[in-house]
């Protein structure tokens, strides 16, 4: 179970003459088994924060540790291993490998992990069914709708039950039935398997599922509260 510590994270991007503070002294602690939603206006730094925790980008300052392991100090190889074995990702925009079918995309991470073929197949078929894509397993991403692609990405992120799922707008392209179904699935994984979720979203339906709701603006955390209603 990960215990994630973010301390004084700063990240600025330069665009021409403008300097954008994507993260502005963000400090955050995430406890094992938590279910957190990250909300905030567009450009507030949600994606940047998720990327930093997943070790996809470099900080200007601050430190991130997962279970005492300093993510910001790891080199490429160990970072890749960390992501491979402990983190499931759903990215905001670009998620699937276009030359692989839905099922192959779901199996990709397990393939890199070295999971045997039969087990991979069993798990991928089950999870695709779970996200409502049975019958579409052999389609390539280009033959799937935006929402279907998103669900393939979610299936891939959770199929091997990582300790931490970082999901960036996982319901952005989904109708409300699918979105609700997906959140139920997340909740089930969270409650029964202890998977920690950190989900960035604009979606009220998603926020309702969160135990803890963090709001960001201009790269800063402006509120961080436990929700009672769940």
């Amino acid at each position: 179970m990960p215990n994630i510590l973010c301390n004084d994270l700063c990240k600025t991007y330069r665009q021409g003459d403008a300097v954008i503070k994507a993260l502005d002294h963000v400090t955050l602690e995430i406890e094992p088994g938590d279910f957190i939603c990250l909300s905030g206006p567009s450009g507030s730094g949600k994606t940047t924060l998720l990327n930093m925790i997943g070790g996809l980008d470099e900080l200007d300052r601050g430190e991130i540790s997962i279970d005492g392991q300093r993510v910001d100090q790891l080199s490429k190889g160990p970072l890749a291993d960390l992501r491979l074995h402990h983190i499931g990702f759903v990215f905001q925009a670009y998620n699937l490998i276009p030359v692989l079918s839905a099922r192959e995309n779901v199996e990709f991470v397990m393939q890199v992990q070295g999971v045997p073929a039969r087990e991979r197949r069993r798990k991928s078929m089950a999870i695709l069914k779970e996200v409502g894509l049975d019958g579409l397993e052999d389609r390539r991403p280009a033959q799937l709708s935006g929402g279907q692609q998103q669900r393939v990405a979610v299936a891939r992120a959770i199929v091997s039950q990582p300790k931490l799922v970082l999901a960036d707008e996982p319901t952005a392209n989904l109708d409300s039935v699918s979105a609700t179904h997906l959140m139920e699935l997340f909740r089930e994984l969270n409650q029964n398997h202890g998977v920690t979720f950190l989900i960035s979203t604009h979606d009220e339906r998603v926020m309702r599922y969160a135990r803890r709701l963090i709001r960001m603006q201009d790269g800063k955390v402006i509120s961080d509260e436990i929700q009672k209603s769940v």
Binding site: L84, H85, F89, P98
Partner: peptide
């Protein structure tokens, strides 16, 4: 470029 980045983000090693 993006797909390669994606594979790395998912945990594929640079050497792979």
């Amino acid at each position: 470029v993006r797909e390669i980045g994606l594979m790395q983000a998912l945990g594929m090693n640079p050497s792979a």
